[in-house]
Deep mutational scan, measured.
Amino acid sequence: NNDALSPAIRRLLAEHNLDASAIKGTGVGGRLTREDVEKWLAKA
């Protein structure tokens, strides 16, 4: 759900042209964290 994304995470996803639904969030309530996105980028 994009409503649950912080502005910083939205920007990070946009910079790398990523789809938030492709990344499993580990934050509160399954929210994406910066670490989630960075780990996903490291694997890609």
Rank of each mutant, 00 (worst) to 15 (best):
T33A: 01
A22H: 11
R34W: 15
W40Q: 06
N2F: 06
G27H: 02
G30K: 03
L41C: 04
E15D: 11
R11Y: 08
V37E: 00
T33K: 04
A8S: 11
G29K: 06
A42Y: 12
V28N: 07
S6V: 05
A4M: 13
R10K: 10
I23P: 01
R10Q: 09
A14V: 06
R34T: 09
P7V: 11
N17G: 15
E35V: 07
N1G: 13
T33D: 01
S6R: 05
T26P: 02
L18V: 13
A14R: 14
L5W: 05
R31E: 08
K24N: 09
L41D: 00
N2T: 13
D3S: 10
K43V: 10
P7I: 11
E38L: 15
N1D: 14
W40K: 04
L32T: 03
A8G: 08
A44E: 11
H16R: 03
A20I: 12
K24F: 10
E35G: 08
L32P: 04
E15A: 15
D36T: 01
G27V: 02
I9Q: 03
G30S: 04
E15S: 13
A8T: 10
N17V: 04
K24H: 10
E35S: 09
I23A: 02
K39W: 13
W40V: 13
L12K: 03
E15V: 14
K39R: 14
A8H: 11
A42N: 09
L13Y: 02
L13W: 02
H16P: 00
A42V: 08
I23D: 00
W40E: 09
G29P: 02
N2S: 13
N2I: 14
S21T: 11
A42C: 07
S6P: 13
E35D: 10
G30F: 01
D36K: 00
I9M: 09
D36R: 00
A14N: 07
A4H: 15
S21D: 11
A8Y: 14
N1Y: 03
A44C: 07
A4G: 14
A20W: 10
T33W: 01
W40P: 01
R11M: 08
S21Y: 07
L12S: 02
A8K: 08
K39A: 14
R11A: 11
A44W: 15
R11Q: 13
G29Q: 07
G25R: 04
T26N: 05
R34E: 11
A4T: 13
R10I: 13
G29H: 08
H16A: 04
G25P: 06
N1F: 04
A22D: 13
E15I: 15
A22Y: 10
N17A: 07
G27Y: 02
A8V: 10
N1A: 13
S6D: 15
L41Y: 07
P7H: 12
N2E: 14
S6H: 09
K39V: 08
R10E: 06
S6M: 06
I23R: 02
I9H: 04
K24P: 14
L12Q: 04
